[in-house]
Design a protein around this nucleic acid. Structure first.
Lengths: 248, 248
DNA sequence: GCAAGCTGTTGATCTTGATCAATGTCGGAA
DNA sequence: TTCCGACATTGATCAAGATCAACAGCTTGC
């Protein structure tokens, strides 16, 4: 993956190792934990990182697996899920570039992580990562902000699953995907959905059929158009907001 | 609330202020963030804290309010909730002694907090608390662990709301309450529920009637007995586990 | 080209839990 | 004590969404 050093380290400053090419070229750099670190700290983090590539529909780790690594997504989409003994599945979140993955309080993963697309990640050994956290306060600070933000998103999802109707869930979901695309600087219209109907259903606590029927209803009322199953034109975002319930 | 100093500070060590009586006598001390701090740090934290007392059914803060303070519960129970415009409500969690409250990434509260019982809290101005976080790494570390643990609990709740049946939800809930009572060193049998059926319903995404019917069914099958509406004897915890689905 | 296999859509029917409606129970106040 | 009001329970009915079933539209491989 290219040379590790792209300039000569000064022997008198061994505490300033260089930042690898893969980091310098990292397209997600401004989104990841690296954004909150100075060059010295970035180098320390990079020193324990391994870059990995996954194909679509690959398992990064399983629920219950020993949490030996933590990951940072640099490109692509990942679904987190929990399953029950009889096969019922709940997707707890869709992640993308910059998102953190596999950081647990316990020693085992509480969810499974599966790729939806081609995915690039930075992988850190858990032990080494925790040492970095202890040594680099801005890293811990950033992670606390990330965890708190995710907790707020989880509370929104809990409201959605506990109290919203199927149409409200689908509308909320589409709005969420639009916001996400915008936040990443991507195209929000047409919206590209990297997940299948089954995955949308498993995320929203609905069946494939109900998801499909809601899409059809939105299409027939001209709120959206479907260029294909995974390419959605948003014709009336304000109608979506109303359907999602503009309560909070 | 009593004298602030219970011994004479040494003028030569102004960096070691004393710990107030209210902290020394705090019954939740081993459960709170204080447990991870040394005396010097505890004193720093105590210096910006205010002790507050609430009666049952009082609002500590509302969803959307400016997040001017963060709180740590020292005794009693609190419900966190989100509401929709038409009044539908979802309780996102029940908190107790040692739990943290109102710590947000954003400037406004993402949930409302209402007391279920008499409640004592330590309140910290948000600004001062963030300064403490920056100055005391173990505090930030502890908070990261707390946030990560809560995130895992939220994922369990998301699975429950998205995929479990009413009976599975109630069984899971009872098991959860048993674990919580045990973790706090309290009595797990009979289990004391500080919340009403309506609140259980709003937590589990069910109606009052469905909650009541499930309790009745569990009682008629001798899995539980009801000493009163809020005092539950657990006769067959293993049956509860089976009903909750022993998947994960 | 054509069959096989996905994924998605649509329709018919069924079931779980919501809704509507009494009724029961308990605790506090007069 | 009795009354009142809040909370809980129980029953009857309803409807949203699940389930079961068929089929359409594509891609893929032969």
């Amino acid at each position: 993956m290219g040379s590790v050093h792209n300039f000569v380290s000064l022997p008198s400053r061994p505490q300033s190792p260089s930042i690898p090419d893969t980091c310098v070229n990292c397209t997600a750099r401004s989104l990841t934990i690296c954004a909150s670190l100075n060059p010295q700290e970035q180098a320390e983090v990079a020193a324990v990182a391994t870059e990995l590539v996954f194909k679509p529909r690959q398992i990064i780790f399983h629920e219950g697996d020993e949490a030996a690594f933590v990951y940072n997504i640099t490109s692509g989409s990942v679904a987190l899920s929990k399953s029950m003994a009889d096969g019922r599945r709940q997707i707890t979140g869709f992640l993308g570039p910059g998102d953190f993955l596999g950081f647990n309080a316990r020693a085992s993963h509480s969810v499974s992580a599966e790729t939806l697309t081609d995915v690039h990640v930075c992988r850190f050994p858990r032990r080494a990562f925790h040492e970095l956290l202890a040594r680099i306060p801005p890293l811990e600070h950033r992670l606390l902000t990330v965890a708190t933000t995710e907790l707020e998103a989880a509370q929104d999802q809990i409201l959605l699953l506990g109290r919203k109707t199927a149409m409200e869930r689908i509308s909320t979901f589409l709005l969420m995907q639009i916001e996400r695309a915008k936040a990443r600087g991507g195209v929000a219209n047409p919206l590209i959905l990297p997940m299948t109907r089954a995955e949308v259903g498993d995320y929203l606590g609905l069946t494939i059929e109900t998801v499909s029927r809601c899409f059809t209803k939105l299409r027939k009322s001209n709120v959206i158009s479907l260029l294909s199953a995974d390419r959605v034109c948003i014709n009336a975002p304000e109608a979506l907001s109303a359907l999602a319930d503009a309560s909070d």
